[in-house]
Every structure is written in C-alpha cells, then in structure tokens.
C-alpha cells in the first residue's frame, strides 16, 4: 500500500471542503464550512494494481488577509488547486498559490479544478486566463461538488501523475 499526502488549496469558499466531502463520504452538504486551519481525510483507491491511500489535507483558503501555513505543505506528494470561476479573484489567488508552492516545496504533480460547474453560465473566466492555465501543463478538471461532476476524475488525474512520478 502506498500512502501519500496531497493538499487541497485555493481561495476561500471555492468549494474545497465540499469537494472532499463529496469524494470521501459521497455526501454533499450545502452548509459551507469555513476551514480555519486544516482538516484531514483519507481515501483509498486502486490505481495500476496498487492500493493508494490518499491523506487529503484540506487547507484553509487563502485570501488577502490570511496566507496558507506553508508548514502544512511539507511532505506532500501533490496538490490540487481549486478555482471558483464565478469569482475571477480566485483565479489570481490560485496562480499565486501555485507560485508559492513551487518556491517553498518545489515542482510537484498538481491538478487545477474549475469548480462549481453547475453554475457554468455564471463563470467569469476569460479565454486568455484559461489558456494560461493550460500552458502550465497541469491537468484541468471541471468539477461540481453539488452535482458530483468530475470529482473522482480530479483525484484520479492527480494519482495518475503521482504514479508516474513514482513509476
């Protein structure tokens, strides 16, 4: 069994906790829990005949007033950055988080999640921004915790990249 630590990062109220809840317990709660520090969940899955045990660290969102505790990132194998396209500011935060991680921890497998796919008509993500994301070379997954869209795929993409890394 391979144990791996992954982190969920992103701005406040982009839906990180909801995504984890959907993934771990397959249960969605409308009540948004503002995570103050960190919350850890576990998910086991099979990939390439190996059992992976993901320790998912749900790390409190970053905004203008609080920054991510970089200590939580230590030892992680990969990360998911969640963006709420209905709020363009979360895109910028995502980029800054990505930069921060690269400088503090180094180059690691990452996945970008465009959450709230159920509200896609209200997305405000511009095409150049989308292109910029794609140019970074990380998988981009459209997700909706509410409608359970792309959640499994998002985690699987990351595991795929992790597996490739450990090959």
């Amino acid at each position: 069994m391979i144990q791996q630590k992954i982190c969920l990062l992103g701005s406040f109220s982009v839906g990180k906790t909801s995504l984890i809840r959907r993934y771990v317990d397959s249960l969605f709660t409308e009540k948004y829990l503002t995570t103050v520090g960190v919350k850890i969940d576990k998910k086991q899955l099979e990939f390439n005949g190996k059992t992976h045990s993901l320790m998912i660290w749900d790390i409190a969102g970053e905004d203008d007033f609080t920054s991510i505790r970089t200590a939580y990132l230590r030892g992680m194998s990969g990360y998911i950055i969640v963006i709420d396209p209905t709020r363009p500011h979360s895109y910028e935060t995502a980029l800054s988080i990505h930069e921060m991680v690269k400088t503090t921890v180094g180059e690691l497998p990452a996945v970008f999640s465009l959450n709230k796919a159920d509200l896609k008509p209200t997305w405000q993500l511009e095409t150049p921004q989308h292109q910029h994301l794609q140019q970074m070379g990380h998988p981009i997954v459209e997700t909706s915790a509410k409608q359970n869209i792309g959640v499994e795929t998002m985690f699987l993409k990351l595991v795929e990249k992790l597996g490739g890394q450990h090959g």
């Binding site: 144990q3 850890i40 576990k42 045990s53 320790m55 194998s77």
Partner: peptide, 26 residues
C-alpha cells in the same frame, strides 16, 4: 516526520481506534 503519514500503529485491547492515518495527519 515530513509527510505526517503513518508508518506504523499499534493499540491495546479494549481500545477503540479511529482512523489512525487521519489522527497521525492531524
């Protein structure tokens, strides 16, 4: 120490142990 991942866990009888991996992470 670095990853917070659980390497090994033992517990005595009569003790209810909840998800030790999560506890070790927390």
């Amino acid at each position: 120490r670095d990853t917070g991942l659980l390497l090994q866990h033992v517990f005595s009888e009569n003790v209810a142990s909840k998800d030790p991996e999560i506890i070790s992470g927390m």
